[in-house]
Design a protein around this nucleic acid. Structure first.
Lengths: 202, 202
DNA sequence: CAGGAAATTGCACTTGGTGCAATATTGCAG
DNA sequence: CTGCAATATTGCACCAAGTGCAATTTCCTG
């Protein structure tokens, strides 16, 4: 009945390959020529599919460029956080959650998450879509905080907490982008968290 | 040379009237039928202009619906803030700045800023544009903080500060929307500021 | 009122995106 | 291996957003 969990059918494998091909083509072309100078038709051609099929995989050109499939935080990360962990200190745990989010955002298996950051830097307009993506996945993060609330009461609304996660992610990206862009984006999280706190308590 | 500052020429008055008419028509229609069921053509017709002229006033349909012309903080507010005021306490001053932003966002003279909130509630997708709008005006807010930094050193990056302004505005809107929607949106600012601080210092 | 600046408009065109029906591909049972 | 059902791809027609350009109209000013 259920196919051997380890090895997916040909169908599924092709689907993933295509998705990857689309994202890869989209990002490559946009980095080369700029967002507006690339059409869906060209991306589709580069990914060896018809333009119509492109829209079977992504809702919009922007989504493809950002490689925004879904927010896939690993089960471990989610469970640990919901249970009140990993450290038990809200601030610290939130920072860790943000790091995980940033990694997930860079793409599941891809190692070139930096491309997304680079594109975002060059096309601030895409941030709109990026926010929309967040909006779409906000409920997941909110749910996470709601569950954690059972384990250990939160000092703020779950919605607010989710927003903080997002803001820290965005701020870390910004700072990484403003700086020399060396190292991991996630390493900026503690610093931006400090800064935000400083403003609100000054 | 410069026309009498008090009374603007017919040209300017018409311009404003048209802008208002467009926003009004756009919001009214969208509230009635939903965002996707309203075309620019219809908005233009309702506002008594040609579709082409519509795009002389707004860059996009979404902008018109949100009434997003420009962020017009009054000169007094800006100057006071840049000079290190009005209270001298960063946290308090930021909260006041957020209130002003929320008012500006609701439209200069219009009293129906609530319509925007209502529309945002019904069409979360528009939040993307809303963020884009913020992105466009971020530099203004950043500049404000940079100037203030001269008067009194800030505990954080100007970019980060600007982000806080935006986040607080958004959070206040959210909370207002989640609640009974009575009273002024700005009244929620202190509370959300508290919550954010609580999360980051827990 | 004449003439120039600025705004409005029509028109043609590109692109993003969707619905639908035909076709091809894959999975699977016998 | 074969045929059948499920699923995916594609072509095609179509709508709506948005832009560039040139013609025309409206406003302002001397």
């Amino acid at each position: 009945m259920t196919p051997p969990a380890g090895d997916l059918g040909l169908r599924e494998r092709k689907k993933r390959a295509r998705t990857d091909a689309i994202v890869d083509a989209a990002q490559r072309l946009v980095l080369e020529r700029g967002l507006d100078a690339v059409t869906v038709e060209e991306i589709a051609e580069a990914a060896q599919i018809s333009p119509r099929t492109f829209f079977n995989y992504f809702e919009s050109k922007d989504d493809a460029v950002l490689g925004q499939g879904s927010l896939e935080l690993s089960a471990e990360v989610r469970e640990a956080f919901a249970a009140g962990g990993p450290t038990g200190l809200l601030k610290t745990d939130v920072e860790l959650l943000v790091r995980s989010t940033l990694e997930a955002l860079s793409g599941p298996g891809h190692d070139q998450g930096e491309r997304v950051l680079e594109i975002l830097q060059a096309h601030p307009g895409l941030l709109g879509r990026h926010f929309a993506w967040f909006e779409r996945h906000k409920s997941q993060v909110v749910a996470l905080f709601e569950r954690r609330h059972e384990a250990a009461p939160l000092p703020a609304d779950p919605e607010m907490c989710a927003m903080v996660v997002f803001v820290l992610a965005r701020a870390a990206m910004d700072e990484w982008g403003r700086g020399d862009r060396h190292g991991d984006v996630g390493d900026h999280v503690p610093h931006v968290a400090e800064q935000l706190a400083a403003i609100l308590t000054a």
